[in-house]
Amino acid sequence: MTPRGLAARVVVDRGAFRLDVDVAVPAGETVALMGPSGAGKSTLLAAVAGLERMHEGRIVLGERVLDSAPRPRVHITPAQRRVVLLGQEPRLFPHLTAHANIAFGRRVQGASTAVAAAEADDWLWRVGLDGLGERRPAELSGGQQQRVALARALVTAPDLVLLDEPLTSLDPETSGEIRALVHDQLRATHTTALVATHDAVDAVALASGLVVIEDGRVVQTGAVRDVLSMPATRFVAAVTGLNRVEGKVADGFWHAGGITLPAAGEPAGAAAAVFRPTDVRIRSVVDATWTAALRLAPAAPAPGEWLARVTRLEQTPGGVRVRTADPDVAVDLPADAALGLAAGQPVELAVDPGAVRFVAPA
């Protein structure tokens, strides 16, 4: 079956919250949807699936108009859309075996018992569960249940698959396995997909494009690599593991609080400095109080050097992340290098200007 692309503008009003976004997914490709909790990701997916009524907009899948509002009013029912929504919970039928769960969708489409059974056998093999078809959901692990749910979604050859953070409830090892499985099966079946996630790893592993939503609107969109390497907001920088500090360029220098960086060639005006936490150097100061540290600090520190205050320490897989203010900057250190640091302590920070990139504000 020829894959069908999605083009949607969705407007949903919920009192103080308004979702107003445009999203497009080319036929046969996967686009990731990212944003903080409450940004509107699940609402968008529900609208595309037909489970949330739009107040305004238009949803087109291939050549079919699935939704249009307010005029002309069109609303294709969820069952007729050929769209599958898979969320954090597999939502398998508890009284049916894994095999029967997968076969169910094809039976609803009118396939014979023999054809549905054969296709369910094939999909059990595709998702690595051959030999487990007679087990009911309660007899399967969480990862195995998600494999069955994915097979049940794809066996019906939908025109569009919507994935709403399906890996969130899984442990890291299992989520990695399911992520690889989703990637392989979406590519093998040339299925068009829109994936909502909090995890940059999902975006990199599954998608070619990335749409970022904050407060109900699109704040950045483009190829995954481009968006993650040039984050337009602090949220994108955070999920990518980068520092993003808002400031201004004037007279060839960028300024933010006590930080000054050379910015030759950058246009004057608002700009954000982006750099890795590993590129920041940190040094304790002799004076333990902020007032004393300020009094002894140089009036004009060298470019890329500034005085900051530790706000908290966070454990990371590779050591410790030191959070500082003002401005908010993260510094990554080996665990032993963080000994003696504590919240409230003044520190001197430095970043090589060559490690900094400047991006326009969102």
Score class of each variant (00 low, 15 high):
Ala273Trp: 01
Ser175Gly: 11
Glu173Lys: 15
Ser208Gly: 15
Gln345Tyr: 08
His99Gln: 10
Phe104Met: 08
Arg91Ala: 08
Val329Cys: 12
Glu246Gln: 08
Thr2Gly: 02
Ala335Trp: 03
Ala69Phe: 07
Asp164Phe: 12
His190Asn: 14
Ala264Lys: 14
Ala238Lys: 05
Asp164Asn: 15
Arg321Lys: 00
Arg135Met: 03
Ala338Pro: 03
Thr189Lys: 14
Glu56Ile: 09
Ser169Lys: 15
Ala100Leu: 11
Leu210His: 02
Thr43Cys: 06
Pro3Glu: 06
Pro303Arg: 05
Ala300Ile: 13
Ala308Asn: 05
Gly209Glu: 02
Gly252Val: 13
His190Met: 14
Val331Ile: 14
Arg281Cys: 13
Ala114Gln: 15
Ala116Cys: 05
Ala188His: 10
Gly318Ala: 11
Asp184Leu: 07
Ile213His: 00
Val201Asn: 05
Arg53Met: 06
Ala223Met: 07
Gly15Thr: 11
Pro334Ala: 08
Ala149Asp: 06
Gly131Phe: 08
Val329Glu: 09
Ala263Glu: 02
Gly247Pro: 08
Ala196Gln: 05
Pro94Cys: 09
Thr289Tyr: 11
Leu96Ile: 05
Asp159Asn: 15
Thr174Asp: 06
Val224Leu: 10
Leu349Tyr: 00
Val212Glu: 00
Val21Gly: 01
Gln144Ser: 10
Thr2Leu: 12
Leu160Glu: 00
Gly131Thr: 09
Val322Met: 00
Leu66Glu: 00
Arg295Gly: 11
Arg244Cys: 01
Pro26Arg: 12
Leu228Met: 07
Arg244Phe: 10
Leu160Thr: 14
Pro3Ile: 06
Ala46Cys: 06
Pro94Gln: 04
Lys248Thr: 13
Gly35Leu: 05
Leu124Phe: 11
Ala16Thr: 15
His255Leu: 09
Val11Arg: 14
Ala299Met: 14
Leu124Gln: 03
Val285Cys: 08
Ala205Trp: 00
Pro94Asp: 03
Val239Asn: 02
Trp125Asp: 03
Ser37Glu: 07
Gln315Gly: 06
Ala207Thr: 01
Ala360Glu: 09
Gln315Tyr: 04
Val356Ile: 08
Gly257Phe: 03
Gly35Cys: 12
Gly319His: 07
